[in-house]
Design a protein around this nucleic acid. Structure first.
Lengths: 349, 349
DNA sequence: CTGAAAGCGCTTACAG
DNA sequence: CTGAAAGCGCTTACAG
């Protein structure tokens, strides 16, 4: 009934616990015969090492922590999937916490993970996070941490990102190429680096291509739970404020889908009246009508890459090697769909 | 640099480790003065109990395991969110594993969780799972386990479900009520209880309402990674096999969305030619065109309820109370949208 | 090649 | 009210 321990194996074989332990770990200083015997007995008795004892003794566990702003989210759930799958391959388990875009929760959760002495941490920052002392504290305590997607530039740790600025540039450039010359932007919140970068990419594309940057064409979204609603609200506002807009670059697909839905209700024809491009390539974007042109962001790959980097750092830490933070940039792709289609070839520059 | 231990607090105060431990746990046999002193010192030194030691000593951890068929999934990701949020409130962490609908993986992962001595397990079975020895084994080892959504009837543990049969009955009945009398069904795989129940509900609704059950109108979907594609494929097959179908009840929204997409391509007008109803109420279903009538399935609530039940069982186990398995049924709701709209009032029975 | 011993950091029954 | 001691189940430096 009670779990089998090393002692049980030692007793049934009449040898010492030490030898049993060594035999199971294939120490070379145990005779082949003993090793075999121990293995077999362990098998028969269905021995499973007590991870609590192993962790206490070795001062490390094979568990990592993951803090993510939102689980019900096409991009982030793909990241989670990538992390969990690759962690499992390396024998690591993943504890998942959701910050709900809250700075306070994020801090608490980081504490929770540290108190549970995870081997490493993967994090995508909350929208609210503008101070980074809590992250610095992790680094000082020598726990490996890798940031992905929503990162803080000034923190000296490994990061897995896309080039948000140039992706946004390309998105905006696409609108310009198909003839838009009054392009609005629904941007993300003020703090996250990726919404800043996407905004800057948008702005640069306008300027580089001889269009005027007009700050009144930039609308802010929180991109929290109500992204879809925000898309609708901003779409309505935009129509009230500006009747000359012919293109919009939107910070994230869910907001874009809200906007397209609202435009549909208001009788605005997408793409004829206004061309819309989103960001992230949610599955949904390919099945709505009109389907949404967007920037594909590799969620699964980002999760996989972030875990692999963390794994390397955990191993290096164990062997006392120096860890040099690394920033890995993944590729994005422009996915052209109906929301930016143009039938009028003369419209194209 | 190294973490603060009870010993460190004891040393700085010149008292015993025993007293420190007791003081921190508010044992009544420690003087108020000592208790206060210890608390303050712990605070100052930033003491965090070593969870490995606590776990080893108390033989239990505050971590539970969750095995889910698919993370990138509107319904399941809502379940995860509900579980994680409520676990955190009770001080529990959640290890998440994804079975990918594979029986072998599910078995391995259950082992992994048991070897990590989680306090309890939440599981939704893989489509492939038809034998349940691995679940029985958990129950024999007295680890609390709660199944949700995809459950096994014959296993004697707590379950959180919806009434799939009557929900499917209602869905089919809705099609009948609006005038369909040749109704197809895209069912889920053969093994999962919920796809069996949904099929049975469909069949019963037909028979109860004087329609003939025709097995050639039932198409099977795997409902794995390619659900959307399966919807497309089966939609095409259906049109080839039967040109008289006027309604379809589809096992899950993603498949239904695939079908609607394909029908659109093939020039079949939904809802005019064929009325379609899905199951689960994915967010996507409300934004596609035509929007999809479906059965709302409360994912977040299911996660919350499953965790709460597990939590109760963990507590009971600790205090040696008897745990009586309980099946909790959550409500569903019919959400009527465009895919079953009828303009012709005379069509309604 | 084998094993006695120390120790990881806690908790708790027991003695005083 | 306080504390010495045992022990949870491992790992590993060390002795033989």
């Amino acid at each position: 009934m009670t779990p089998v321990t090393l002692k049980d194996i030692a007793n049934t074989l009449g040898i010492s616990i030490t030898t049993v332990s060594k035999a199971l770990k294939d120490y070379p200083d145990v005779s082949k015969k003993t090793r075999k015997l121990v293995r077999e007995t362990a098998e028969t008795l269905n021995y499973k090492p007590n991870s609590f004892a192993v962790n206490l003794r070795t001062k490390q566990s094979k568990t990592i922590g993951l803090i993510i702003p939102e689980i019900v989210h096409h991009f982030f759930s793909n990241v989670i999937k990538g992390i969990v799958a690759h962690a499992e391959k390396k024998g690591y388990l993943v504890i998942i916490l959701q910050s709900n875009e809250s700075f306070e929760l994020e801090k608490k959760q980081l504490d929770l993970l540290m108190n549970n002495r995870v081997a490493g941490i993967l994090i995508s920052l909350a929208n609210e996070t503008g101070k980074f002392d809590h992250i610095e504290a992790i680094i000082e305590q020598k726990t490996p941490i890798v940031m992905f997607d929503k990162i803080a530039k000034i923190i000296n740790c490994s990061k897995v990102v896309i080039d948000d600025r140039s992706a946004a540039y390309n998105a905006t450039k696409h609108l310009i190429d198909i003839g838009c010359n009054r392009i609005a932007h629904f941007r993300g919140p003020l703090l996250p680096q990726n919404s800043i970068d996407r905004f800057l990419g948008y702005k640069k594309a306008l300027i580089d291509n001889g269009l005027q940057y007009d700050s009144s064409l930039v609308y802010i979204c929180d991109c929290g739970d109500n992204s879809f609603e925000e898309g609708k609200i901003n779409a309505r506002k935009l129509l009230e404020d500006h009747n000359d807009v012919d293109g919009i670059f939107i910070n994230t697909d869910l907001v874009a889908i809200g906007a397209i839905t609202e435009f549909g209700k208001l009788g605005v024809n997408i793409p004829h009246d206004i061309k819309v491009i989103g960001f992230s390539n949610w599955f949904m974007s390919s099945v709505i009508s009109p389907s949404l042109t967007t920037i594909d962001q590799p969620g699964y790959l980002m999760g996989k890459t972030a875990f692999k980097q963390l794994f390397k750092e955990i191993k290096k830490l164990k062997s006392n090697e120096i860890v040099k933070p690394k920033t890995i940039e993944l590729d994005t792709a422009l996915i052209i769909r109906e929301s930016t289609k143009t039938n009028n070839l003369s419209e194209i520059k």
